[in-house]
Nucleic acid binder design. Structure first.
Length: 475
RNA sequence: GCCCCCAUCGUCUAGUGGCCUAGGACACCACCCUUUCAAGGUGGCGGCACGGGUUCGAAUCCCGUUGGGGGUGCCA
């Protein structure tokens, strides 16, 4: 680590999440910002996963972040991965930096306990630490914390998103650098890591803005020019509160598991706080990357709207070729969660139905419920659908006459439709009404893919068997 | 309490002093299409928080008010 500014060379954007067991959608958006900027500038995306006590025992948390990033297109081969850094094997570097600050007069030791600080604060009526030990000349010692000596004046944070933000230094208390046990605080470690990794751009959520003057002061005291800051607005829920794990569905992994497409998620995330040029917001990543600028990012928090995400996902699903769609469905058609047995699944049948399924879903997880009747011995009857449909006597008559007509009909969707129409006409039913009993008898539900195509695929034997079973049930 | 940020349809946004009678998207409503449900098509509803300035002219600039949010640990 040398002093001076290594401002020459390509920019280095760091993304520094702390592992918490899941990857936050807000974090995903920030990562995407860093990624887009790094790529378009020919710079580097540096992933530095912060270490925590809890995460140290759970390496899968860290792995989860890398996985999630890869899912949204931030490939592990194309990013610089560093970490976990903070507080582990690099702690000595952090302590050394702190001691240097002490030697050079930028920091001092203090022996006040937090109780004593609270008492003093209460007595004076001013919140926080009052700088009691600034000039007491204390040496290092057990139980003594090292505090930063905040200089007088004003700290100006030049922010690419917010512009110029001024902080009066006398509103910043002398914050702790080293704890009483000598271990470094996060804030210090963070800055030292940024310095030693030659980070030039820090793009992160707005919630960190109030801490920025402290970090900038540290950069300067350490003899370096601070990085370019950019604080992007947070994502909020319907109550306009920052998205939280307890209340909101924030795990990126969860959206993946529910059948959201990475491209749709990425596109949607990028429309929060920013908009691509042109009349449509559904745009490929290449265009986003080319157009994205921090200067254009909004200043106000954005509501993470599940409905709009769903709409995006539906659009992306419909835009897929049949081959791609069939392939994307694969994980949802096999495995333990699927209601049918593995050997009764027929890929050719699914393939024939795929086009009809594609316009009817918002997430891939909805696929099985639309096609299950094709692969089950007998359909799973929805009791509500059954009762509703067969409440009227003509439904039974319709079913009976359809059964006879199908027995004699050509087995093609068009002929089956005509046959059904004719049966309906005889009973005074339009096709919409006429097909309902058949649909429920064959598929178990009132809604689903177009019926006659499905009947053709199922085959005469299977269909007649199901109609008979339904008729029997009605007796 | 103190510090900081924010403010265009319900929501996400376009808008950088005249092109704004404020544009698009999601949601919602209606109609068309239709074998259910979707998809698709057409149309509709709906907004510059408020009050003062500056200016020939303000959604856009300034000030204030109100309302939101965030930060304030020997947490990360």
């Amino acid at each position: 680590m040398s002093s001076g500014t290594p401002s020459s060379g390509a920019p280095r954007y760091r993304f520094a999440p702390s592992p918490t067991g899941f990857f936050h959608v807000g974090g995903a958006r920030t990562a995407l910002y860093n990624w887009a900027l790094a790529k378009k500038s020919g710079g580097t995306f540096v992933l530095r996963i912060e270490d925590t006590d809890e995460a140290r025992n759970r390496p899968e948390w860290t792995e989860g972040i890398v996985d999630a990033l890869e899912w949204i297109g931030i490939s592990r081969d194309d990013a610089t991965f560093e970490g976990p850094y903070f507080q582990s094997e690099y702690a000595s570097e952090h302590v050394a930096a702190a001691e240097r600050l002490y030697r050079e007069g930028h920091a001092y030791y203090c022996d006040l306990t937090s109780e004593q600080i609270q008492e003093r604060s209460k007595a004076s009526g001013k919140p926080g630490y009052d700088g009691y030990s600034r000039d007491r000349g204390l040496e290092a010692g057990p139980g003594r914390v090292l505090r930063f000596r905040v200089p007088p004046g004003v700290t100006v944070v030049d922010d690419l998103v917010r512009g110029r933000v001024e902080f009066q230094n006398d509103t910043i208390e002398d914050f702790v650098l080293l704890r009483g046990n000598g271990s470094p605080m996060f804030l210090l470690a963070n800055v030292v890591d940024d310095v030693s990794m030659r980070i030039t751009h820090v793009v992160r959520a707005e919630e960190h803005l109030p801490n920025t003057p402290k970090q900038q002061l540290l950069w300067e005291a350490l003899g370096h020019t601070p990085p370019t800051w950019a604080h992007v607005p947070v994502l909020v829920n319907e109550q306009r509160k920052k998205l939280s794990k307890r209340r909101d569905k924030v795990a990126l992994e969860q959206y993946r598991a529910e059948g959201y497409l990475a491209d749709a998620m990425v596109n949607y995330l990028m429309t929060l706080g920013w908009a691509p040029q042109g009349e449509t917001e559904i745009v490929p990543w290449s265009q986003i990357q080319a157009q994205f600028r921090l200067e254009d990012v909004n200043h106000s928090p954005a509501f993470f709207d599940l409905k709009k995400l769903a709409a995006f996902n539906g659009e992306y699903i419909r835009a897929m070729s049949i081959d791609d769609f069939v392939e994307a469905c694969a994980p949802w058609l096999h495995g333990d969660a699927v209601p049918w047995s593995a050997d009764s699944f027929d890929p050719a049948v699914f393939r024939a139905l795929a086009e009809l399924v594609q316009t009817r879903i918002v997430t891939l997880s909805e696929v099985p419920a639309l096609v299950d009747f094709m692969f089950l011995e007998s359909p799973t009857l929805d009791p509500v659908a059954w009762d509703k449909t067969f409440a009227s006597p003509e439904s039974t008559s319709m079913l009976r006459s359809a059964r006879d007509a199908y027995g004699a009909s050509d087995w093609h969707a068009e002929s089956l439709k005509t046959a059904t129409e004719n049966c309906g006409t005889a009973l005074g039913l339009k096709l919409g009404k006429a097909q309902a009993p058949v649909r429920v008898a064959v598929t178990g539900r009132t809604v689903g893919p177009p019926l006659f195509e499905a009947l053709e695929l199922l085959g005469r034997d299977d269909v007649l068997r199901r109609l008979d079973a339904a008729l029997q049930r009605l007796n």
